[in-house]
Design a protein around this nucleic acid. Structure first.
Lengths: 193, 193
DNA sequence: AAGTAAAACTAACGATGTTAGTTTTATTAT
DNA sequence: ATAATAAAACTAACATCGTTAGTTTTACTT
């Protein structure tokens, strides 16, 4: 096979495309290699393991999620920002479910740069919470509450766990966000004391 | 190998034990067979596929989760019941993370008896919500909100997504439940109109 | 004691991630 | 222009995985 100057970035990009179009579940290094007209073993000239590849894709997914979140809250404040943020989050999960899944499969236990990615995940919601009069500790907790609600909705709807009743999941999610806003406002009052 | 009268239930039980002690990730039919002093191919005398086995384990997990939830809310009402329910849910996820994971991997798309399992998941929280003056539609939405919060907390903590800040996750979760109770009470007032 | 059906077996297939060792190619240095 | 080097591809193989086909053994029933 004639050398084609394949780069590490090309491989990651191709992997992302494959996962988005054909699903994380059915993704394999051999298929990826086939797509690039290469043998699977040749991939190891560019990556060290499949874990490393998934980690790289996870970084991409996190940065994409952060991007849509930041653009959603631009110029907005307080409850309006919270609603825009959750809308963007929910849409991301619905529109790019396979890429979203990679984020969770990220081995957070690991080392170094994963720390930065962790704060990329947190930054948008922490920015919004910065618009409220809250203590630092309140913000740390509330940020988790927000992410739990959003992730809970996305992953369970994707898994088919919300099929029992015929009511719209988007409506349920907006109701959850309303509850979250109530909680923020209630926390704000506590902080004032 | 002398026949040992191995039954389907024995196999499921052994699989559950293995998954709980050594993790869902490293589980395999060959190891399971080894544990039972059997060749992997012999498992197929009792089960049709690994999918079927996972489904069976999923049923078990759902029934266990339902059990601890029902016993937690026994004799309790309204906010006290909500808190007891979330406590039991959270503890289940923390104490039996591997079994909990199987629930989500359940292919809800599938047919028949999965429907019953779906309602087993929903029953405890719907019972608690029955103690509030809510419309049926409100209950359908609120049940999803509750499950999203709980699943969001359990799965993200398990995945290591909550390591950014050194505050206790249990506290964050109880705060989320407080927000959920605020939401129920606010919905109750809307329903009265 | 003979027959039957369940429960085990052996052997193999195709797919997966991965490693070791080899050849080719493009670029760089002489 | 030619020789050296390092990168990028290759082939071949390994262990593991779920799974199937066909065979033997065992225990119970008649």
């Amino acid at each position: 096979m004639a050398r084609q100057g394949l780069t590490r970035a090309d491989i990651i990009r191709a992997a992302i495309d494959m996962i988005e179009s054909e699903g994380l579940h059915s993704f394999s290094l051999r298929e990826l290699a086939g797509r690039l007209h290469i043998k699977a073993a040749s991939l190891y000239n560019h990556i060290q393991s499949s874990d490393e590849l998934y980690t790289e894709i996870g970084y991409y997914a996190i940065s994409e999620l952060k991007k849509v979140q930041l653009s959603a809250i631009a110029g907005k404040e307080r409850s309006e920002a919270v609603e825009a943020l959750s809308d963007a989050y929910y849409r991301f999960g619905k529109e790019r479910p396979e890429i979203y899944k990679v984020i969770l499969s990220l081995p957070m236990v690991k080392n170094d740069a994963i720390h930065k990615a962790g704060f990329d995940i947190v930054e948008p919601i922490m920015t919004v919470l910065g618009g409220y009069r809250l203590t630092e500790e309140q913000k740390m907790h509330l940020q988790r509450v927000f992410r739990s609600i959003m992730h809970g909705f996305i992953s369970q709807e994707e898994a088919g766990c919300f099929r029992q009743y015929p009511v719209d999941v988007g409506v349920s999610c907006r109701m959850a966000v309303r509850g979250f806003i109530l909680l923020i406002e209630s926390s704000e009052k506590e902080a004032e004391i």
